[in-house]
Design a protein around this nucleic acid. Structure first.
Length: 496
RNA sequence: GGUCGAGUGGCCGAGUGGCUAGGCAGAGCUCUGCAAAAGCUCCUACAGCGGUUCGAAUCCGCUCUCGACCUCCA
């Protein structure tokens, strides 16, 4: 008996059985990137974590609508209200339209997701594409009495909200404590309470990204888009909301407040938070200057790297830890992951080519069959326990031993029988490829392989081994490659 | 300062009361034209101190160390 899927709900701080609101449909919303510059590996980790969750839910047969937004409204660069926003600033710097900046980094983000083999979400809405809906939600929140206008901006009224609801319950904050700890910030005089946050912000003259609204020209608050787009595509209450730990407060807290303020309903059943990727024990972040870009990793050009690492190596490395644990990024750990990943891939290559061979006179080895079945169950058990990919991989390595033993003859096909073999093959394939999203990376360049064949061709020719010469020529011709014996030497061309 | 989390063998990293996690590195063996791969075996740890318990890495308390959030951040 394999226990059902359970996941750690940040809201209740407990592992709970996963029961969708409206099975077999599952709504999942994940906070996507702000596209004002390149995503780094810390960002990638979160998206890979949710990719696994998405893939596993699909594998279990759920009809998942996975919504991941693109934040393309520029939000303020710091805690001072100087009117400058990240995308606008970048646009000025690069002499581009803000939407060019947005497009550039959105494209880059998609490329990165692709090389790490993350499935695209079902819907990828943008904040700028939902300005009208955001204005509508602001109106509703104002109507409900949880927001007020002040000097062309609209603020969420935490004091009012907290009379009926509990602001801070997700991140464990207490409003009174927060009040005692607030700092002096610009623009606070517009607010009734320092904790109040902007859901619409009046645009200063230098602010490029701006829209008309009932409160004047401005732009929506950062937290609002997620409430709006999750509601639009998943409903007022949906199953899973995910994001990095660092978004828990204030972003997700504000999201809850806005959604509750608008609909009166609890928006999210299960909150999932991924932990940080660290470097030497410290959170990877741009401001600390310790972040790695995917491109620096693949080319090995980052100063902290002593060699390049492939995207799948990194994906595997990340899956060897649990999504809710911090993971430290280092050369040693990556090198170890690289070898482990290749070992797993060699198994994948083998099992794909293997098929059951009936053997006469070989007795079934019940222990081996039980081991295979047990390991297959363990893979599900591990994934069902809050998506424990690290443990799943451990079980896969044990299954791999069976595959290798079959290959070398240490274990006979007859011993495990057709059923045992099928179980081994289907489990390994579906967990490695479909669920963990790991794929083989053929690292050789086809042109280099052709070069090797040309060398053999040349040697055969020099040895006057014309049968071999003809064979090589004919084999290459089958692949659409013509050999050219010229005075200057041997070369090849695409067959015309 | 407030809130929360973490400290596991040479390294990474699972594990929440008793049962071999796993990977990498290291040692030995088998196989082998060479080389590799693979298989088998070994190395069996839980920050410190106390407590609960028949039994604790796992629960409780204290101490030390580290980190995250409290401001944009995956």
């Amino acid at each position: 008996m394999i226990p059902k899927l359970r996941l750690f709900n940040s809201l209740t701080k407990q592992k709970e059985e996963f029961v969708p609101i409206n099975p077999p449909y599952v709504g999942m919303y994940v906070c996507g990137p702000t596209v004002y510059n390149d995503v780094h590996l810390g960002n990638v980790r979160t998206f890979i974590s949710f990719d696994i969750i998405y893939r596993y839910l699909l594998h279990l047969g759920y009809k998942v609508r996975y919504v991941r937004n693109i934040t393309d409204v520029g939000h303020l660069t710091g805690d001072t209200d100087d009117g400058e926003d990240k995308i606008g600033k970048r646009a000025k710097l690069m002499n581009l339209e803000p939407m060019e900046v947005v497009q550039k980094y959105t494209n880059g983000f998609h490329q990165v997701m692709d090389i790490f083999n993350a499935l695209p979400p079902s819907i990828e809405p943008t904040a700028t594409g939902h300005i009208l809906e955001q204005i509508e939600m602001i109106k509703t929140i104002i109507d409900h009495g949880y927001a007020y206008e002040s000097k062309g901006s609209v603020y969420f009224d935490i004091g009012k909200f907290n009379e009926k609801y509990q602001y801070g319950k997700l991140s464990g904050r207490v409003v009174d404590d927060l009040m005692a700890n607030t700092r002096e910030l610009d623009g606070q005089d517009e607010k009734r309470n320092p904790l109040d946050f902007a859901i619409w912000k009046n645009a200063s003259s230098e602010h490029i990204m701006r829209w008309n609204s009932p409160w004047g020209i401005g732009f929506p608050g950062w937290h609002l888009e997620c409430s709006v787009m999750s509601t639009k595509y998943l409903g007022e209450s949906f199953d899973i909301h995910g994001g990095g730990m660092d978004l828990k407060f204030p972003h997700h807290e504000c999201e809850i407040a806005q959604s509750v303020g608008a609909s009166g309903k609890e928006p999210v059943k299960y909150w999932l938070h991924t932990n940080m990727l660290t470097v030497n024990g410290q959170k990877m972040s741009k401001s600390l200057g310790n972040s790695f870009l995917p491109s620096e990793l693949i080319t090995g050009t980052h100063e902290l790297l002593d060699r390049p690492y492939s995207p799948m190596t990194v994906r595997f490395f990340m899956l060897q830890s649990h999504y809710a644990s911090t993971l430290d990024f280092s050369n040693e750990a990556l090198s170890a992951a690289n070898k482990g990943y290749k070992k797993l891939m060699n198994g994948l290559k083998l099992i794909k080519e293997m098929s059951f061979v009936p053997e006469e006179g070989v007795a079934q080895n019940q222990q081996a069959v039980d081991q295979i079945n047990g390991l297959a169950d363990n893979c599900y058990r591990a994934m069902n326990d809050d998506f424990n990919t690290a443990l799943t991989i451990g079980h896969l390595f044990n299954l791999l031993k069976k595959i290798n033993s079959l290959q070398t003859g240490g274990l006979k096909y007859g011993e495990i029988g057709q059923e045992g073999f099928d179980k081994l093959k289907s489990t390994y394939l579906s967990f490695v490829e479909e669920i963990l999203g790991l794929k083989e990376e053929l690292i050789v360049e086809p042109k280099n392989l052709i070069g090797i064949l040309l060398t053999l061709y040349k040697e055969a020719k020099e040895a006057k081994n014309y049968d071999k010469v003809d064979e090589i020529r004919s084999l290459l011709k089958n692949e659409g490659i013509t050999l050219k014996d010229m005075k200057q030497g041997i070369d090849w061309a695409y067959e015309e």
